[in-house]
Nucleic acid binder design. Structure first.
Length: 230
DNA sequence: GCGACAG
DNA sequence: ATCTTGTCGC
Protein backbone atom coordinates (compact mmCIF):
# COMPACT_ATOMS: atom_id res chain seq x y z
CA UNK A 1 0.00 0.00 0.00
CA UNK A 2 1.08 3.54 -0.69
CA UNK A 3 0.13 6.72 1.15
CA UNK A 4 1.51 10.26 1.45
CA UNK A 5 3.61 11.61 4.32
CA UNK A 6 1.57 14.03 6.43
CA UNK A 7 4.12 15.22 8.96
CA UNK A 8 7.25 14.39 10.95
CA UNK A 9 7.08 12.02 13.92
CA UNK A 10 10.05 13.61 15.62
CA UNK A 11 8.08 15.70 18.07
CA UNK A 12 8.07 16.68 21.71
CA UNK A 13 4.92 15.95 23.75
CA UNK A 14 3.93 19.63 23.54
CA UNK A 15 4.37 19.66 19.79
CA UNK A 16 2.39 16.42 19.54
CA UNK A 17 -0.55 17.97 21.39
CA UNK A 18 -0.48 21.02 19.13
CA UNK A 19 -0.47 18.76 16.08
CA UNK A 20 -3.44 16.77 17.40
CA UNK A 21 -5.48 19.96 17.76
CA UNK A 22 -4.59 20.94 14.23
CA UNK A 23 -5.27 17.56 12.59
CA UNK A 24 -8.47 17.02 14.57
CA UNK A 25 -10.14 19.65 12.38
CA UNK A 26 -9.77 17.39 9.35
CA UNK A 27 -11.53 14.38 10.86
CA UNK A 28 -14.76 13.07 9.32
CA UNK A 29 -16.88 10.97 11.67
CA UNK A 30 -20.20 11.39 9.85
CA UNK A 31 -19.78 9.00 6.96
CA UNK A 32 -21.69 5.69 6.99
CA UNK A 33 -19.52 2.78 5.83
CA UNK A 34 -21.22 1.25 2.83
CA UNK A 35 -19.01 -1.47 1.40
CA UNK A 36 -16.73 -3.56 3.62
CA UNK A 37 -15.54 -6.79 2.05
CA UNK A 38 -12.09 -6.56 3.62
CA UNK A 39 -11.40 -5.27 7.12
CA UNK A 40 -8.00 -4.92 8.75
CA UNK A 41 -6.96 -5.14 12.38
CA UNK A 42 -3.80 -3.49 13.73
CA UNK A 43 -1.94 -4.00 16.99
CA UNK A 44 1.43 -3.63 18.75
CA UNK A 45 3.39 -5.62 21.31
CA UNK A 46 6.64 -5.15 23.22
CA UNK A 47 8.66 -6.12 26.26
CA UNK A 48 8.53 -4.13 29.47
CA UNK A 49 12.08 -2.79 29.39
CA UNK A 50 13.04 -3.15 25.76
CA UNK A 51 12.72 -0.45 23.11
CA UNK A 52 11.90 -3.13 20.53
CA UNK A 53 8.43 -2.79 19.09
CA UNK A 54 6.35 -5.30 17.14
CA UNK A 55 3.52 -4.15 14.91
CA UNK A 56 1.17 -6.20 12.77
CA UNK A 57 -1.78 -5.70 10.49
CA UNK A 58 -4.07 -8.56 9.50
CA UNK A 59 -6.59 -8.32 6.66
CA UNK A 60 -9.77 -10.38 7.02
CA UNK A 61 -12.56 -11.27 4.62
CA UNK A 62 -15.81 -10.22 6.30
CA UNK A 63 -17.80 -12.93 4.52
CA UNK A 64 -16.20 -15.73 6.55
CA UNK A 65 -13.52 -14.02 8.71
CA UNK A 66 -10.76 -15.90 6.95
CA UNK A 67 -7.32 -14.26 6.91
CA UNK A 68 -6.41 -12.78 3.55
CA UNK A 69 -3.04 -11.32 4.46
CA UNK A 70 -0.83 -10.52 7.43
CA UNK A 71 2.19 -8.24 7.61
CA UNK A 72 4.46 -7.42 10.52
CA UNK A 73 7.30 -5.06 11.32
CA UNK A 74 9.90 -5.04 14.07
CA UNK A 75 11.32 -1.67 15.05
CA UNK A 76 11.75 0.81 17.85
CA UNK A 77 9.33 3.41 19.06
CA UNK A 78 10.51 7.03 19.14
CA UNK A 79 7.94 8.08 21.71
CA UNK A 80 7.10 7.04 25.30
CA UNK A 81 3.64 6.00 26.44
CA UNK A 82 1.72 9.07 27.56
CA UNK A 83 -2.06 8.85 28.00
CA UNK A 84 -3.61 10.88 25.20
CA UNK A 85 -0.53 10.61 22.97
CA UNK A 86 -0.58 6.89 22.20
CA UNK A 87 -0.69 7.41 18.44
CA UNK A 88 2.75 9.00 18.47
CA UNK A 89 4.13 5.82 20.00
CA UNK A 90 2.42 3.22 17.83
CA UNK A 91 1.44 4.76 14.49
CA UNK A 92 4.91 5.18 12.93
CA UNK A 93 5.57 1.43 13.10
CA UNK A 94 2.02 0.42 12.27
CA UNK A 95 2.27 2.50 9.09
CA UNK A 96 5.35 0.50 8.08
CA UNK A 97 3.28 -2.66 8.33
CA UNK A 98 0.54 -1.12 6.18
CA UNK A 99 3.17 -0.11 3.62
CA UNK A 100 3.96 -3.80 3.12
CA UNK A 101 0.30 -4.71 2.56
CA UNK A 102 -0.74 -5.86 -0.91
CA UNK A 103 -4.47 -5.69 -0.23
CA UNK A 104 -6.19 -2.39 0.47
CA UNK A 105 -8.79 -2.94 3.22
CA UNK A 106 -12.18 -1.19 3.11
CA UNK A 107 -11.94 -0.40 6.82
CA UNK A 108 -9.53 -0.66 9.74
CA UNK A 109 -10.10 -1.54 13.40
CA UNK A 110 -7.58 -0.22 15.93
CA UNK A 111 -6.75 -1.32 19.46
CA UNK A 112 -7.44 2.04 21.14
CA UNK A 113 -9.70 5.08 20.94
CA UNK A 114 -10.71 7.17 17.97
CA UNK A 115 -12.95 10.19 18.59
CA UNK A 116 -13.36 9.25 22.26
CA UNK A 117 -10.25 11.20 23.18
CA UNK A 118 -9.65 14.40 25.21
CA UNK A 119 -8.86 16.33 22.02
CA UNK A 120 -11.05 14.14 19.79
CA UNK A 121 -8.00 12.74 18.07
CA UNK A 122 -7.21 9.22 19.25
CA UNK A 123 -5.11 6.55 17.58
CA UNK A 124 -7.81 5.59 15.06
CA UNK A 125 -8.21 9.19 13.88
CA UNK A 126 -4.51 9.57 13.33
CA UNK A 127 -4.09 6.29 11.44
CA UNK A 128 -7.19 6.89 9.35
CA UNK A 129 -5.99 10.34 8.37
CA UNK A 130 -2.61 9.01 7.22
CA UNK A 131 -4.05 6.15 5.22
CA UNK A 132 -7.21 7.77 3.90
CA UNK A 133 -9.15 4.62 4.76
CA UNK A 134 -12.21 4.38 7.06
CA UNK A 135 -10.78 3.65 10.51
CA UNK A 136 -12.29 3.21 13.97
CA UNK A 137 -11.19 2.40 17.48
CA UNK A 138 -12.15 -0.57 19.64
CA UNK A 139 -10.44 -0.13 23.02
CA UNK A 140 -10.48 -2.53 25.95
CA UNK A 141 -10.73 0.21 28.56
CA UNK A 142 -11.92 3.80 28.86
CA UNK A 143 -9.74 6.83 28.27
CA UNK A 144 -12.30 9.59 28.74
CA UNK A 145 -16.05 10.16 28.91
CA UNK A 146 -18.96 8.98 31.09
CA UNK A 147 -21.47 6.19 30.55
CA UNK A 148 -23.97 3.85 32.10
CA UNK A 149 -23.36 0.13 32.21
CA UNK A 150 -24.69 -1.49 29.01
CA UNK A 151 -27.04 -4.49 29.32
CA UNK A 152 -25.34 -7.74 30.24
CA UNK A 153 -25.92 -9.56 26.97
CA UNK A 154 -24.01 -9.40 23.70
CA UNK A 155 -25.31 -6.60 21.49
CA UNK A 156 -26.07 -4.22 24.34
CA UNK A 157 -24.84 -0.67 23.77
CA UNK A 158 -24.53 2.36 26.06
CA UNK A 159 -23.55 5.83 24.82
CA UNK A 160 -20.24 7.36 25.91
CA UNK A 161 -20.60 11.07 26.61
CA UNK A 162 -18.31 13.96 27.39
CA UNK A 163 -19.30 17.59 27.74
CA UNK A 164 -22.68 16.92 26.18
CA UNK A 165 -21.12 15.24 23.19
CA UNK A 166 -21.77 11.64 22.09
CA UNK A 167 -18.16 10.59 21.52
CA UNK A 168 -18.49 6.81 21.37
CA UNK A 169 -20.31 3.65 22.43
CA UNK A 170 -19.68 1.15 25.18
CA UNK A 171 -20.41 -2.18 23.51
CA UNK A 172 -21.05 -5.59 25.02
CA UNK A 173 -19.55 -8.00 22.49
CA UNK A 174 -20.08 -11.14 24.58
CA UNK A 175 -22.53 -12.19 27.31
CA UNK A 176 -21.45 -11.20 30.80
CA UNK A 177 -17.97 -9.97 29.94
CA UNK A 178 -16.48 -6.48 30.14
CA UNK A 179 -17.61 -4.23 27.29
CA UNK A 180 -15.31 -2.56 24.74
CA UNK A 181 -15.11 1.15 23.89
CA UNK A 182 -15.94 1.97 20.29
CA UNK A 183 -15.49 5.30 18.52
CA UNK A 184 -15.03 6.45 14.93
CA UNK A 185 -11.58 7.51 13.79
CA UNK A 186 -11.95 8.92 10.30
CA UNK A 187 -14.19 8.47 7.23
CA UNK A 188 -16.72 6.42 9.23
CA UNK A 189 -19.55 7.16 11.64
CA UNK A 190 -20.24 5.80 15.12
CA UNK A 191 -23.10 3.56 14.04
CA UNK A 192 -21.03 1.83 11.37
CA UNK A 193 -18.14 1.37 13.80
CA UNK A 194 -20.48 -0.10 16.40
CA UNK A 195 -22.16 -2.43 13.93
CA UNK A 196 -18.90 -3.79 12.57
CA UNK A 197 -17.61 -4.30 16.08
CA UNK A 198 -20.60 -6.49 16.89
CA UNK A 199 -20.55 -8.13 13.48
CA UNK A 200 -16.92 -9.20 13.93
CA UNK A 201 -17.20 -10.41 17.52
CA UNK A 202 -17.17 -14.11 16.72
CA UNK A 203 -17.88 -15.37 20.22
CA UNK A 204 -14.97 -13.52 21.78
CA UNK A 205 -14.89 -10.23 23.67
CA UNK A 206 -12.30 -8.83 21.28
CA UNK A 207 -13.55 -8.57 17.68
CA UNK A 208 -11.78 -10.76 15.13
CA UNK A 209 -9.68 -8.10 13.33
CA UNK A 210 -7.98 -6.83 16.48
CA UNK A 211 -7.90 -10.28 18.03
CA UNK A 212 -6.02 -11.75 15.10
CA UNK A 213 -3.63 -8.80 14.97
CA UNK A 214 -2.92 -9.30 18.66
CA UNK A 215 -2.21 -13.00 18.18
CA UNK A 216 0.10 -12.13 15.31
CA UNK A 217 2.25 -9.58 17.15
CA UNK A 218 2.59 -11.91 20.09
CA UNK A 219 3.84 -14.66 17.82
CA UNK A 220 6.38 -12.23 16.39
CA UNK A 221 7.63 -11.20 19.80
CA UNK A 222 7.94 -14.71 21.16
CA UNK A 223 9.75 -15.94 18.06
CA UNK A 224 12.18 -13.02 17.93
CA UNK A 225 15.46 -14.69 18.89
CA UNK A 226 17.35 -11.40 18.97
CA UNK A 227 15.51 -10.41 22.11
CA UNK A 228 16.50 -11.74 25.52
CA UNK A 229 13.67 -13.85 26.90
CA UNK A 230 12.71 -12.75 30.36
C1' DG B 1 -3.74 20.59 44.77
C1' DC B 2 -6.12 15.90 43.63
C1' DG B 3 -7.58 12.24 40.82
C1' DA B 4 -7.70 10.01 36.09
C1' DC B 5 -5.12 8.12 32.65
C1' DA B 6 -6.09 3.99 25.36
C1' DG B 7 -1.46 0.65 25.08
C1' DA C 1 1.86 -3.21 26.98
C1' DT C 2 3.93 -7.05 30.20
C1' DC C 3 4.72 -10.00 34.55
C1' DT C 4 1.64 -14.67 35.97
C1' DT C 5 -1.66 -20.13 38.41
C1' DG C 6 -5.18 -21.27 39.77
C1' DT C 7 -9.86 -20.61 40.15
C1' DC C 8 -14.81 -19.19 40.24
C1' DG C 9 -18.79 -19.10 37.20
C1' DC C 10 -21.65 -19.97 33.11
Amino acid sequence: MKFPTLHSWDLSPKEAIALQKELAQQIDVERPLKKCALIAGADCSYNRFSPTFYAAVVVLRTSDWSIVEAQGVIGESPFPYIPGLLSFRETPIVLQAFAKLEHRPDAIMCDGQGFAHPRRFGLACHLGLWLGIPCFGCAKTRLTGDHDEPGSNAGAVAPLHEKGEHIGNVVRTKNKTKPVYVSPGHLIDLNSATQWTLESSCGYRIPEPTRQAHLHVNQMRLQDTSEPEV
